[in-house]
Amino acid sequence: MEVRTIKVFTTVDNINLHTQVVDMSMTYGQQFGPTYLDGADVTKIKPHNSHEGKTFYVLPNDDTLRVEAFEYYHTTDPSFLGRYMSALNHTKKWKYPQVNGLTSIKWADNNCYLATALLTLQQIELKFNPPALQDAYYRARAGEAANFCALILAYCNKTVGELGDVRETMSYLFQHANLDSCKRVLNVVCKTCGQQQTTLKGVEAVMYMGTLSYEQFKKGVQIPCTCGKQATKYLVQQESPFVMMSAPPAQYELKHGTFTCASEYTGNYQCGHYKHITSKETLYCIDGALLTKSSEYKGPITDVFYKENSYTTTIK
């Protein structure tokens, strides 16, 4: 009895394709271990004539594949690729409408935090270190965002349907971005203890939790000093293409032309909904596939993004 075979390709990165001759009487799992086709788990399936010449994702289970996976995804987590594939199996079914010149995501599976993050990423200057993220990001900007969303979920250790947080998501993504040249110098002034300067680099240099107003941050924000008295913390120097200011959701007025974009969060910790506000020729609110415009805006804002380049204080 002759062994019926077909020729397929296996890959971990969709760049390096490895030619395989597979036995049609055995499952993919018996031949390769966990195997995925377009995100779908085909591990328990036997090869079919229609699979001839198709590319299958496999887990990096030998040295060659491990090197290829690390170079593309910059992670050695053995569960990463499987999590990416199972997320992709959902995100490829989502709709990605162009809204006001940006790629958004039609609401499904509690994905409003991903839509808000995706919209924000198209408006701030950011370059990702893992080629996987950078490639998928370019495709997302062009309207094909399924891979990018699935990668975000995998890097953030999230599953489809789980509630997510924009600030946490951005923080994970910033860790995989090139923020080497970003720098922030802060000064804390206390009447009792004097003053202390701190220099922050990388992710810490672009994120701040405690106030939404970048102007206020430049002037000074009140913080408790270690001595128990009130101290003032203010920005001395900022070198970065953008800054992200966050605070627990509270009524906040966004003035046209003073910011790049913002995240609105309605609801409580267990259950809520994100919308995205962007400042173009007027203010726009993007909620999944829905767009509304207004000249002014007041609502429960939790993150505001500002364009920056270089700032030095005039406070002496």
Rank of each mutant, 00 (worst) to 15 (best):
P300R: 06
K233R: 13
Y96M: 01
N100C: 15
H176Q: 11
T302Q: 05
S294W: 14
Y96D: 03
R66L: 11
N187Y: 04
N110C: 07
L291W: 15
V99I: 14
N157Q: 06
G29S: 07
Y297D: 04
P249H: 06
S279L: 06
M24I: 12
I45C: 12
I45H: 14
Y252L: 08
N111W: 00
I45T: 13
H273M: 02
V22W: 06
D38V: 09
C182I: 05
T43I: 07
E281M: 01
F259M: 02
G33T: 07
L186P: 02
A247N: 04
V166M: 07
G257L: 05
G143Q: 02
G194H: 02
N16G: 07
K316S: 15
G299L: 04
S240Q: 03
C182P: 02
K93R: 14
E168L: 15
P60C: 02
K275L: 02
S213C: 09
Q238I: 03
Y137C: 06
Q216F: 01
T198G: 03
V12K: 08
G164E: 00
Y28L: 13
L88D: 04
A140T: 08
K95C: 10
C156K: 05
S213G: 00
L254T: 00
K191P: 15
D13I: 07
M209E: 11
P249T: 07
G210S: 02
V304G: 00
K298S: 15
R141G: 05
S240K: 03
C149Y: 02
H18A: 07
Q122Y: 04
I124N: 05
Y137K: 04
E71K: 11
C285F: 10
T19N: 10
V206T: 02
Q237T: 10
A145I: 02
A117S: 09
Y73H: 06
S50N: 12
G228E: 01
T19E: 13
P131V: 03
I45E: 14
V236G: 00
L212H: 04
A231E: 00
L102G: 06
T103Y: 08
I277A: 02
S50F: 10
H74R: 09
A289N: 10
V67S: 14
G143H: 03
K280C: 11
T64Q: 14
K255P: 05
F32N: 13
V243Y: 01
L173D: 03
I15M: 09
N187L: 12
T199V: 12
I124G: 10
Y36A: 04
L254N: 05
K293S: 12
R139C: 11
T211P: 03
Q230E: 09
K191F: 03
L114P: 04
G33I: 05
N309S: 13
F217N: 01
T10E: 08
K293L: 07
T11A: 04
T43K: 10
C190E: 05
A154R: 04
F70C: 09
T260V: 15
Q197M: 12
P34T: 13
Q30E: 14
N187P: 02
L37N: 12
C271D: 08
P248E: 11
M207E: 01
S294H: 15
V21L: 13
S79K: 13
V188E: 06
N178S: 09
Q197C: 05
E71M: 06
L119K: 00
I277F: 04
E71W: 03
Y274K: 04
Q122N: 07
T314M: 14
T35R: 07
N187T: 11
Q197N: 08
Q31Y: 14
G29R: 09
G267T: 15
G164Q: 03
L121K: 03
N178T: 03
A115V: 01
G299Y: 02
L114A: 01
F242N: 02
A40M: 14
L65S: 10
G101A: 02
L212I: 07
C227Y: 00
T169V: 15
G228Q: 08
R139L: 12
T292D: 09
Y311D: 13
N309E: 15
R4H: 13
T19L: 13
E144G: 07
L254W: 00
K93A: 11
T198I: 15
L81V: 14
P34F: 00
E2D: 12
L114D: 01
A150K: 03
A115W: 01
P78M: 09
A145Y: 01
S310H: 15
T120K: 00
M207G: 03
E68Q: 09
T266N: 07
L151I: 03
V304A: 01
Y72D: 03
L17R: 10
L121Q: 08
E52C: 10
T120R: 01
K183P: 03
T91A: 06
P130T: 08
L121A: 09
S213A: 06
N187C: 12
T76P: 12
N110L: 00
N110H: 04
L88F: 10
H48W: 14
A247M: 05
G272R: 00
I277V: 08
D23G: 11
H74M: 07
K127P: 11
I124H: 04
S295D: 13
H18D: 10
T27C: 12
A132Y: 03
L114N: 02
K275E: 00
L153E: 01
T302E: 02
P34H: 13
F242H: 00
H256C: 14
E168P: 02
T302V: 13
F128T: 01
P130V: 08
Q230S: 12
C193L: 02
E253N: 10
M209I: 15
E308K: 04
Q31S: 12
L235F: 02
T282W: 08
L126R: 01
V21W: 11
A132D: 01
I315M: 15
E71L: 07
L81C: 08
T11G: 08
C271P: 03
A108W: 04
E296H: 15
Y155V: 01
Y234Q: 08
P300D: 13
A87H: 07
S294K: 10
Y265P: 00
C261Q: 02
W94A: 07
